[in-house]
Simulated scan of single mutants.
Amino acid sequence: MPEATEKKMGPWGRFLAMPADNPVKTVIVAVVLCLFCSMIVSAAAVALRPVQAENKVLDKRRNILEVAGLYKPGIDVTETFNEKVEPRLVDVEAGTFSDAADPATYDQRAASKDPARSIGLDDDPASIGRMAKLASVYIIRDDQGGIEKIILPVHGYGLWSTMYGFVALKADGNEVAGFQFYEQGETPGLGAEVDNPRWKAQWPGKKIYGDDGKVKIAVSKQVPNADTASYHIDSLAGASLTSRGVDNLIHFWMGEKGFKRFLDNLKAGTV
């Protein structure tokens, strides 16, 4: 190409005039394309973040309604939640309700990662590392204003993931009304069967505490007898570590370091 013509074309013209298989042209096109695509993806992620956060809250509320036995397909989840569910905060160590934060906006998971708002655990069967000082609980009241159900958040490590869920208790703070996870990453077809409706159907009607006040409910392979049937949950077939994780987390959260003090105070009417 004559030098005068090349100068007249300018840098962009010279670039376009390069052969399609020119290595320099190939690298430049690839880099520009990658930068453009990354900008599109980043912009979409930022734009959709509020929608994702809203959907996450909606899914959590749906799970609370489900475990409380209040969910029906087609209902307005937000409206039903606001009408039927009373969010509260509990000081776990004291076992009392707390007004230290707004229950509607409190993020228990974020608090558990903040040393100023959480407690480090030495005896940690649920493998959660730290526990938030304040926990979100959800109260369902009857027509007379009395407590009908208490929904408590629970979480703990299974085989591959930290499983987050809810246990719903009846007003006595002992009989299970429902149990389910809303987030888990266990093995599909094995540990992920914690989401199987048939497995979850075992929980309602079971008791958490024995006559001595100790946590007696157990997820195990043992065949129940007359003494243990009221406390027995069948472990998941082929998923012994996930089953053990569920057993560990339910014992932790229903025990002395978890919600037992709160449930005892609630039963005694001192909260």
Rank of each mutant, 00 (worst) to 15 (best):
K60E: 10
F181T: 00
T187Y: 08
S136H: 08
G165R: 01
T96L: 09
T105L: 01
F15H: 10
A192P: 03
G258P: 11
N225T: 14
D211G: 11
A17T: 05
D114I: 04
A237S: 15
I250A: 09
V77A: 04
I233Y: 08
R141V: 12
K170C: 05
A20Q: 14
K170T: 02
A218I: 11
F181H: 04
S230I: 00
G165A: 08
E183G: 13
L70T: 11
G245V: 00
A126K: 02
S42I: 05
T78S: 05
I139Q: 11
G129Q: 06
M1H: 08
R244E: 02
D99P: 01
I40T: 12
L241D: 02
P23G: 04
D102F: 07
D172R: 14
K200N: 15
S136A: 09
V271L: 14
D143S: 15
T105S: 15
G13R: 03
M1A: 13
L70R: 09
S243E: 12
L134S: 00
C34S: 15
F166R: 08
D124Y: 13
Y231C: 02
W12I: 14
D99I: 02
I119D: 05
G205C: 03
C34D: 11
N248R: 07
A192L: 13
M18T: 02
I217A: 05
G205I: 01
E79K: 14
V92H: 04
G13T: 06
G129E: 12
N248Y: 04
I40Q: 10
G74Y: 06
V27S: 10
V77P: 07
R62I: 07
D107F: 07
H155C: 11
Q144I: 00
P73T: 03
I128N: 06
F166L: 06
C34M: 15
A101D: 10
I128M: 09
S240H: 04
V85D: 08
A47V: 15
D124K: 09
G120D: 12
L58F: 10
A132V: 00
L58A: 11
S112W: 03
I140F: 06
S220L: 13
L48A: 15
K257L: 08
L70H: 10
F252S: 03
G69Y: 00
E148P: 04
Q108M: 13
P73I: 05
D59T: 07
L236N: 08
A177G: 05
E183V: 13
L65N: 03
A17M: 14
A239M: 09
M39C: 13
L58V: 03
K25R: 14
A20Y: 09
T228Y: 01
A100M: 02
P188C: 09
N174D: 13
D142Q: 09
D143R: 13
W199E: 04
T187P: 07
P19G: 06
L169T: 09
L249Q: 08
L266C: 04
T105W: 01
D143V: 08
K7M: 12
G165F: 05
M9H: 05
E193Y: 09
D195P: 07
R61E: 10
S98C: 00
G146Y: 10
G120Y: 06
M163W: 03
A239W: 00
S127C: 02
